[in-house]
């Protein structure tokens, strides 16, 4: 498709520089887009980039204003002086602290265990011979067909019958068994060179040794991609935490905490926006340090996280 632009760049060139030139100059290797075409691309992308950044700018701007400033009719481009104390107020709020703790524990524990469980199952399906590996894999594929979002009511019913509503285990445990992640690990392990594993076995390692010391360390980039995706997905997940946790319970997450203010009548905009900014901090850190893995994970799996 770059060639799409290359081609149009050439068309532009040919009209300006005369036809004879293009005739003798059919293909000039890996062409680069040039001229007016390129300028147009940068202009469009520049506008899009500004549009995409506006919501972040508004988020940060309001978090640094006072509620009085917001209600004034005049537009504020940047709050001067910035009211950083909004953030200190939020950080000292026990409600926020509890929600932050809930989110951190949920995202870390859930992501780690999901990956560990799925990696083990994937390895078992790919490499350990068993009479039942086919039926178990068929069952995994069947479960893939069930849309995860519509199972929140059945899951709630089970969790409720265990008496786990409003508990950490109710929040975390039902999310740990990801058929799609098992499927991805199985594919990755099937493509893993068998020779390396055989070498490990010659050195006296058994299946667990091969799995832990040879296969997993060699698949670390793949594991990192799935971990980052899983962390983003868990951190931002809303529906399941909404039905299973919340204000009345001992456990809540940042998304649910923010939503309770968002769906009720709120007057403290600045505090709420500061809370939202703080809720994004871990993800922004993950995003900028692990973007490589995030991008790779999405490109390889088509997963939203």
């Amino acid at each position: 498709m770059t060639a799409t632009f290359e081609a149009s760049a050439r068309t532009a060139e040919s009209t300006s520089a005369g036809r004879s030139r293009t005739r003798t100059h059919h293909y000039r290797g890996p062409l680069r887009p040039s001229g007016g075409n390129l300028v147009a691309r940068y202009v469009v992308l520049g506008v899009v980039a500004v549009l995409f950044l506006i919501p972040f700018w508004v988020l940060i701007k309001i978090s640094l204003m006072t509620n009085d400033d917001i209600s004034k009719p005049n537009f504020v481009f940047l709050p001067i002086p910035p009211h950083v104390e909004n953030y200190l107020t939020v950080l000292g709020d026990p409600g926020f602290q509890q929600a932050l703790l809930g989110s951190v524990v949920m995202a870390v524990v859930s992501t780690t265990l999901t990956i560990a469980i799925a990696a083990m199952a994937g390895y078992g399906l790919a490499r350990v011979p068993s009479r039942l590996s086919k039926p178990v894999f068929a069952l995994t594929l069947l479960v893939l067909m069930v849309p995860s979002a519509t199972t929140f009511i059945p899951n709630y019913i089970i969790v409720a019958s265990f008496g786990w509503v409003g508990t950490l285990q109710g929040l975390i445990i039902p999310t740990l068994f990801a058929a799609f992640t098992v499927f991805l690990f199985r594919q990755a392990f099937l493509n893993f060179p068998r020779e390396l594993e055989e070498a490990g076995k010659l050195d006296g390692l058994r299946h667990f040794g091969v799995f832990l010391r040879i296969v997993m360390p060699n698949q670390i980039a793949f594991v990192a991609s799935l971990t980052v995706l899983g962390f983003v997905g868990n951190w931002n997940s809303f529906l399941w935490p909404l039905v299973i946790s919340g204000d009345g319970f001992g456990i809540t997450t940042l998304q649910v905490y923010l939503s309770t203010f968002l769906t009720a009548q709120t007057f403290d905009y600045t505090g709420l926006f500061a809370t939202a900014v703080l809720s994004m901090v871990p993800l922004v850190i993950v995003f900028f340090t692990m973007q490589r893995f995030l991008v790779r994970g999405i490109a390889e799996t088509g997963m939203t996280g």
């Binding site: 995409f52 919501p55 508004v58 923010l258 995003f287 995030l294």
Partner: peptide, 21 residues
């Protein structure tokens, strides 16, 4: 820049839209 919103949750985005923009 275009990918950055992927790190934002629907809840936070709804907040920006409803109470911000």
């Amino acid at each position: 820049v275009i990918f950055l919103p992927t790190a934002c949750s629907y809840v936070v985005a709804s907040l920006i839209w409803k109470l911000g923009l």
